[in-house]
Structure formats: structure tokens, C-alpha cells
Design a binder for these strands. Structure first.
Lengths: 186, 186
DNA sequence: GGGTTAAAGCCACCATCGTTGCTTTTGGAT
DNA sequence: ATCCAAAAGCAACGATGGTGGCTTTAACCC
């Protein structure tokens, strides 16, 4: 959404210490109170840093969060490739679950939900692309299409992460993927 | 979350006009900018009402939104009962889709997502209860359990309403419910 | 119609976010 | 060691959200 801020021109010493302190503070606060409830003065105080330094460096909270670290799955990471579609989907879904099991990532997902609805989110688009890749690569796709993977694997995981994260565990991904293959063959 | 505010002791005249103007304003603004972006002064200005009146009557935005109208499915509404489980689930899911196709309800769902994750939401709990009722009432539940209905009907609808509402239409509910019945019989 | 009083309006105030000009510190290079 | 420019700190300020005291309006009861 917002453009990326340049990395500090002074990568060491106090500047780096400020960045590290602010990063730690913003992650703590996002976990504790959620993205919507935090402000730059709060982050600055927790980090032991002057608010002006944060305003000068990043301008606003969203730019800072986008810049300070990557809280989304890397679109260029390798996808699982075991020559077994079901196994690939399981590994892929497990990676997704693991990512959003980090409280800070779950909190940022919830924050993203609050502002969604106008344009397709990066997360949604990337997951659909990945699902398409996994299906296209497989010799037999079992009649599955990417929309089904989104509806019956991604959507339930996202739903649970947002609304009842305590119901997500290591059995969630394989169970949902397994359900995809319990079909009457056409 | 917050307690309910009492209805005005003066149900007519100016008091009622204020409530109506504020209700219209808050719905417009929630649709236009989303729940997170609106403030009481904004609502008051749109409504042509003094902000103090809003603060005095409701105290805060969340209390006002909770009080001013019901933006959630009535837990006491009758559930569909056609003696056909699949048809009942379709009607039930269509009602759900219709509700969240109202932009104001979708916007409030997104806002709810932003603050979810600590306790089970009313929406989630009520939908699970309703799913249980529909399944228990049916002579043959086709081996379905409430969690499956949540994962494969409710979650995809919620996911799409939040992240890509333009992909939701009148075919969504029957398609998702239909998928529930495409199982290999155990 | 007149009186009573709840509720709306008005205004002054406080707290907090965010901005800006300036000073001080300090990382990195010579 | 010294210089200098970048970045942090400091302080004063404007803008805005929210609160409380007081006045004015008008809904409801008789």
C-alpha cells in the first residue's frame, strides 16, 4: 500500500539500536493490544526512543510496519515439490499455518482484514497463484481447481486464525487438505 | 463487549430525530470509510448534531453502534425447516450471505475481525449452534458435523465477504453446501 | 396552554497525536 | 584525532478527540 522507506544510511551504532528497539516494541505492542490500538508515541516510549525520531524516519505507523521486517510469506520462497500433490498441498498449508501461528502475524492479518474489501489483497492473490502452480504442476489434479483450494483450505485456516486461533494446531492443515481428496470422482 | 445503552426516555420529537440522523450518518460513514476510520465528531457533523449530544447519550462509538440498531443475525429468528437437510443448509447459508451482502454489515464484520482472537465471537458461536441444530434435527446427517459446516460453508463465505466481497453472489451458498454432500459414503 | 425536566446545544478546557525549527550527539571517513 | 553530515533529542506549537459546566430547547404530563 505505502511505499517502502529506505534503510538507514547509517547501519550501525545508535541508528541500528533505535531500529532494533522500535522493531521489538512494535511487535510486542501488536501482540499485546492489536495493530489498531497502538500509536507511534506508545511504540517510542516502549522502545525508549524519542517519538520524533520515529516520525522523522518512517512518517507513520503503517510505513514503519511495512519497512521494519517482513511479516508476510515471501512470494519467492520455494514451494514444496514431492511429486505428490496431496503431500505438497499439506506442506504448503502447514507452512501457512505456521506463519500465522506467530501472534504478530495473526495480529497483522486481523488488521489487514479491517481494511480489506476494496482490492484483492496480496495475501489472497499470492495464495491463489501458488495453489494454481501446485495444481498445474501435478500430473493428476484430481479435478481440483484453485478456487476450491482457497475455499476449503485457505479460508478455513484464515477464518480460524482470525476468530479462534486456539483451534488451530498441527492437525489442521492435513485434515483440511485431506477433505479435498474425499470426493466422488467425476 | 460493551453494555447496552438504554433507549431514550423521550421516544419522539427531537430526540428521535437525533437518533435517526446519527444512525444514518454512522451507516453511511461505516460503508464509505470503514469502522476504524470514523470518529464521533465525524458522525455528529454528518448527522448535523452536536458532538456533545452523541458523547452524552452513548459515551463512545462502539456503544453507539451496538445500541443504534442490530447489525447481527437475530439469534432467535426461525431456522429453515424443509425436512431436507441440504435444502435447510442452503437456505441458512443464503440468509447468511444476504446479511453480509449489506455493505454496512460487511464493514462491521471486518471491524470485528480486527479485534477478534481473544474470545469466541458471538457470530461464530451462534453459527455453530445453528449448524448443530440443523444437523441434529435431520434424520440423516450424512456424517456431517458442525465443524465441517463451519469450515466448508461459513469460513469460505466469511473469507470472501472480508477479502473479496465482489466474488460473493447468489450461487455461492448452494455451491458451498453442495460440496458438503459430494462425499464418498463411509 | 403551562410547567417540569430530559435532552440538545454551546463553550471552555484538557490530553494526545503529529509537525517543525533548532540543538546535540555520534557514526563513518579522512 | 578531527571533521562533518546524518540522525537522535528537545521543546514549542497546531490540530483534533473527548469531557464537563452551564444554557437553551422542546417533549411529555397535567
Amino acid at each position: 500500500m505505502t511505499g517502502m522507506s529506505a534503510r538507514p544510511t547509517r547501519p550501525g551504532g545508535r541508528s541500528a539500536a533505535v531500529v532494533a528497539a522500535v522493531k521489538a516494541a512494535v511487535e510486542e505492542l501488536i501482540e499485546e493490544r492489536g495493530r489498531a490500538a497502538i500509536t507511534i508515541p506508545m511504540v517510542a516510549e516502549r522502545a525508549g526512543v524519542n517519538p520524533t525520531s520515529v516520525y522523522r524516519r518512517w512518517g507513520d505507523l503503517q510505513t514503519m510496519i511495512n519497512d521494519i521486517a517482513t511479516y508476510r510469506l515471501d512470494p519467492k520462497r520455494p514451494l514444496p515439490d514431492t511429486s505428490d500433490l496431496r503431500r505438497d498441498l499439506e506442506l504448503w498449508a502447514e507452512e501457512f499455518v505456521t506463519h500465522y501461528s506467530q501472534p504478530v502475524n495473526a495480529a497483522l492479518l486481523r488488521a489487514g482484514a479491517a481494511t480489506a474489501g476494496e482490492v484483492e489483497s496480496d495475501c489472497l492473490r499470492n495464495r491463489r497463484i501458488e495453489a494454481s502452480l501446485l495444481l498445474e504442476r501435478a500430473p493428476d489434479s484430481f479435478g481440483l481447481d484453485p478456487d476450491q483450494v482457497i475455499d476449503f483450505v485457505i479460508a478455513p485456516i484464515i477464518y480460524r486464525i482470525i476468530f479462534s486461533p486456539w483451534t488451530v494446531d498441527e492437525t489442521t492443515a492435513p485434515r483440511l487438505v485431506g477433505r479435498l481428496f474425499e470426493r466422488v470422482p467425476v
